[in-house]
């Protein structure tokens, strides 16, 4: 995405490799490793480059182990890269300067920063002093977040008594009290039910609109990505496979379309394409993208059709295809 505005996140050839010990199974190998430790270098992120403009919401996609979390950890300042450069809000993240840490946040869906045994509000108060917020600022933001996330009932409960969804809402609120300008969200909706996922999505979109904050988020739920991210970056085996509009990703990688045909009598349509399912008069067909127009016209001429719709395959399938095409 080109933008005249100075980008807030810039990565240039960012690379992270880990040295891991190699040990084969068995006692002999275990004894051998006492004498000579063998190691191997694993490249988790290989020369990744991209830039994000202020206020953008970008989906960072890839299968497990693709390098998403490693990249987010480098951008938030937890990990030092092996080579390459990155600047976020003008800071080199891994120097972890106070000014930088006060302006960004990292939310990891499966880890929590709230204190387990005390009421939520007390964990929030701890963030007030850590981030040096004035009482007025704190009060105003707390009211905002309480309203947006419907936290009212939860604030005085100890964290251990909250459900996963309630806890996640509080985690997000805690991570946003200092009103960060950049949000790194790693699987923020992991394990939440559909309603709660939708709720959080709406909230992230609102937050982005109200504050103009930049968001980079990873998720395995494509609904998150579709609802929030006009732009996606796809990473696989530590390399960027795609960077652009979500619609372009679908156009480029979806090799087929799905045709749903409602016909009288439920005729056998297997001669037109691959039948995915048949339910009474309704047949679902999979047709290669190139043939869609021709086959649709053919069916409309040959069959007495009550209703027909052409749809793009689900984004999950497209993504799955991106990965399998590059690495069959």
């Amino acid at each position: 995405m080109t933008n005249a505005v100075e980008p807030v996140v810039v990565l240039e050839g960012l690379t992270k490799s880990y040295v891991v010990p190699v040990r084969e199974a068995g006692l002999k190998a275990a004894l051998g490793s006492l004498i000579r430790r063998r190691t191997r270098t694993v490249e988790a992120v290989k020369g990744v480059s991209f830039a994000i403009a202020p206020g953008e919401v970008v989906g960072f996609l890839g299968p497990n182990g693709a390098g998403k979390t490693t990249t987010l950890k480098m951008l938030s300042g937890l990990l030092h890269p092996t080579s390459g450069a990155a600047r976020v809000l003008g800071f080199e993240p891994w120097l972890r300067q106070r000014e930088y840490l006060s302006r960004m946040t990292l939310v990891m869906g499966q880890r929590n920063q709230l204190m387990w045994d005390i009421p939520v509000i007390d964990s929030f108060d701890r963030n007030r002093v850590i981030y040096r917020l004035s009482r007025e600022e704190y009060r105003a933001r707390l009211d905002d977040l309480t309203g947006l996330l419907d936290l009212g009932e939860l604030l005085n409960k100890p964290v251990r008594n909250l459900s996963l969804g309630e806890r996640m809402k509080c985690e997000i609120a805690a991570a946003l009290l200092h009103r960060p300008q950049i949000l790194f969200l790693d699987e923020p909706t992991l394990g939440l039910d559909v309603t709660m996922q939708r709720r959080l999505r709406t909230f992230i979109a609102d937050y982005n609109r109200h504050t103009g904050a930049t968001v980079l988020l990873t998720s395995h739920y494509m609904a998150d990505v579709e609802a929030l991210c006009p732009r996606v970056i796809v990473i696989h085996h530590g390399e960027i496979l795609f960077d652009g509009a979500l619609s372009k990703l679908i156009g480029e990688f979806a090799a087929y379309k799905t045709l749903i045909v409602d016909s009288d009598g439920g005729r056998d349509l297997s001669s037109y394409g691959e039948v995915v399912s048949r339910d009474g008069g309704r047949t679902t067909l999979r047709i290669s993208k190139a043939d869609t127009a021709r086959v649709t016209a053919q069916i409309l001429t040959d069959v007495s059709v009550r209703d027909l719709s052409v749809i793009d395959p689900p984004i999950d399938e497209v993504i799955d295809r991106v990965f399998s095409e590059v690495n069959p």
């Binding site: 300042g77 106070r98 850590i130 981030y131």
Partner: peptide
Amino acid sequence: QMGQLSFALLRPV
């Protein structure tokens, strides 16, 4: 092990 240190490192204190 529990990753609490990661959060501690990302706080400006």
